[in-house]
C-alpha cells in the first residue's frame, strides 16, 4: 500500500494554490483549457521552454507566472 504524497504549495499568477505532488507544467497549462499557443511560463524568474513543460515537475514553494498576449503598447 502506497502513501498519498503530501500536496505541494505553489503560487500561480500571484495566487497561493495547492497541487498534487508531481504536477507538471504541462498539466498546469492544460488546466487553463486554452490553446497552449500564446502561453508562456516562468518559474522563479526564469523561462520554462515549451519543450520542457511535460517533463518539468513543480516544486513546493514555486512561484509560477502564466502569461499571454493582451492589448498593449
Amino acid at each position: 500500500m502506497t502513501e498519498m504524497p503530501a500536496p505541494i504549495g505553489v503560487v500561480v499568477n500571484g495566487r497561493p494554490t495547492s497541487l498534487p505532488a508531481g504536477t507538471t507544467v504541462a498539466t498546469l497549462v492544460d488546466g487553463l483549457h486554452r490553446s497552449p499557443g500564446g502561453i508562456a511560463v516562468a518559474i522563479g524568474g526564469e523561462v520554462v521552454p515549451r519543450s520542457a513543460w511535460a517533463g518539468w515537475s513543480l516544486d513546493d514553494g514555486d512561484r509560477i507566472e502564466l502569461l499571454g498576449a493582451v492589448q498593449g503598447g
Binding site: N13, G14, H33, R34, G38, L66, G68, A69
Partner: peptide, 17 residues
C-alpha cells in the same frame, strides 16, 4: 501591431491575437 504580455485571465473571451 503591438501587444503586451500579462498574466492569463482565465475568464477572458477572444484574444487580440
Amino acid at each position: 501591431a503591438t501587444v503586451a504580455m500579462r498574466r492569463i485571465d482565465p475568464t477572458a473571451r477572444g484574444s487580440v491575437l
